[in-house]
Simulated scan of single mutants.
Amino acid sequence: MEKCTFSTVTQKYLDSYAGILDTMTGTMNCAKENDSISYNFIVKMIPHHQAAIRISEELLRYTTCIALQNIATEIVVTQTKETEEMRKMLCGCAGYRNDGQSLCGYRRQYGIIVTNMFSRMRSACPDNDINISYIRQMIPHHEGGIAMCRNAMRFSICPQLRAVLKDAVKAQVKGIEEMKKLLQCKV
């Protein structure tokens, strides 16, 4: 099988992406959990959001595509705000406890979601066009985030968190639609 050759700039972007993905995966996998779905969700979603922010900031260093600049900037702004909101509500939401059966159901589905997301993000086909690589990487990231939110919302969670998750799903669905349109046009 022939190895792909990338431009120096593309290789720098892809190397940075790989590092960000490794950090996200490790941080999400090592987050300490308790008997609160709300708390468990937050401590894993914060590094998920931080990765989207860092990947988007990395893209903004290189892209000249205005539509993608707008999408990446929106991700940085929205997910920075959501991360701050989740940090503020973490202690209060940690007291919102769940029974063992709910925790087991939540964790089982969460494991399936993130295993799929991590796999799809790692196997996103890189391209010498950084814009295309970013879209191929960010779509499974967003789809994983949406699935994580929907999984948490199936259970009894902190009311403040539920409102944040509804907004996050709405924003990420919109972002996926925009990125898929750009990908169809080959950016």
Rank of each mutant, 00 (worst) to 15 (best):
M1D: 08
C4I: 03
F6E: 01
Q11E: 04
K12T: 01
Y13H: 00
A18H: 11
T27E: 08
M28K: 09
M28Q: 07
C30F: 08
C30A: 15
E33V: 06
N34F: 01
S36L: 11
Y39H: 14
N40P: 04
N40A: 10
N40E: 01
N40F: 05
F41R: 02
I42E: 10
K44C: 10
P47N: 09
P47I: 06
R54D: 07
S56H: 07
E57W: 09
E57M: 14
L59P: 09
L60W: 06
I66D: 15
N70W: 11
A72P: 08
A72D: 10
A72M: 09
T73E: 15
E74M: 15
E74S: 15
E74W: 00
I75S: 06
T80D: 11
E82A: 09
M89A: 08
C91E: 15
C91V: 14
A94S: 14
D99H: 11
G100V: 11
L103W: 02
C104I: 14
G105Y: 00
G105F: 05
Y106D: 00
R107W: 07
Y110L: 07
Y110F: 14
G111R: 07
M117H: 02
M117F: 01
S119P: 00
R120Y: 07
M121V: 02
C125Q: 11
P126T: 07
D127T: 09
D129T: 09
D129S: 13
N131C: 12
I132A: 05
S133P: 08
Y134P: 10
R136T: 06
I139L: 10
I139G: 10
H141K: 06
A147V: 05
A147H: 06
M148F: 01
C149L: 08
C149D: 06
R150L: 12
M153C: 02
S156A: 14
I157S: 03
C158M: 08
P159W: 09
P159I: 02
Q160N: 12
L165G: 05
K170L: 04
E178F: 05
E178K: 15
M179G: 02
K180D: 06
K181S: 09
L182V: 04
